[in-house]
Amino acid sequence: MKSEILYPGAFPMVRVELTAGEHIKAESGAMVACSPTIDIESKMEGGFLGALSRKFLTGEKFFFQTLRASRGPGEALLAPTVPGEIVILELDGVNEYMVQKDGFLAGADGIVIESKMQSLSRGLLGGEGFFILKISGKGTLVLNSFGAIHKIELKPDQEYIVDNSHLVAWSSTTSYNIEKATSGWIASVTSGEGFVCRFRGPGLVYIQSRNPGSFGAWIRQFIPVSE
């Protein structure tokens, strides 16, 4: 799987080149265009129960697409639903990433996707819900975000504070605690930050430059109310 980001910025696409017989998985509905040599199958990754838990627990789609180059080599164009940047990661079999529920776009066949339950405090206050995706395995992983993606590199024991709804993905060697944004409860709410995540390295944290929830709230005021 060779991949390349086209039109980087707000409305990017990923071009994925597949050799004959190779297949990748992608978020359901991600395929924009592809060579005639490629077959699209829908597949319940992790079996029926796994798919069911992913659907109900993480809000991710029940089916993943499988794009298979069954009739010779070809390419496919993939795009996410929301405007925002795409990032390509290479997993080496040791690295593991936690990905917030809408972050997955596509992955090589060697990528393993599981739903994982967070601790209660992280689930309630972390902004990602109780269930996140744990992505491990070997191969290329394509993530999407809302807005631009920014990578934070943390050295061992280095700390960084991230507003909870801006998280896209983080490596499992990092750990984080949920904290109030300011020392007082009222100031935490009025500062507009509420709760933040204090990350501790080593590892990588990918954040998105826009907060989908806030954007939704902002846009709601312009939607005419139907009678």
Binding site: V94, L154, G203, L204
Partner: peptide, 16 residues
Amino acid sequence: SNALCFGRDYPASGAP
């Protein structure tokens, strides 16, 4: 690989 090594001269994601 079975581990990730972190240090000044390694990438932030760790060296397998």
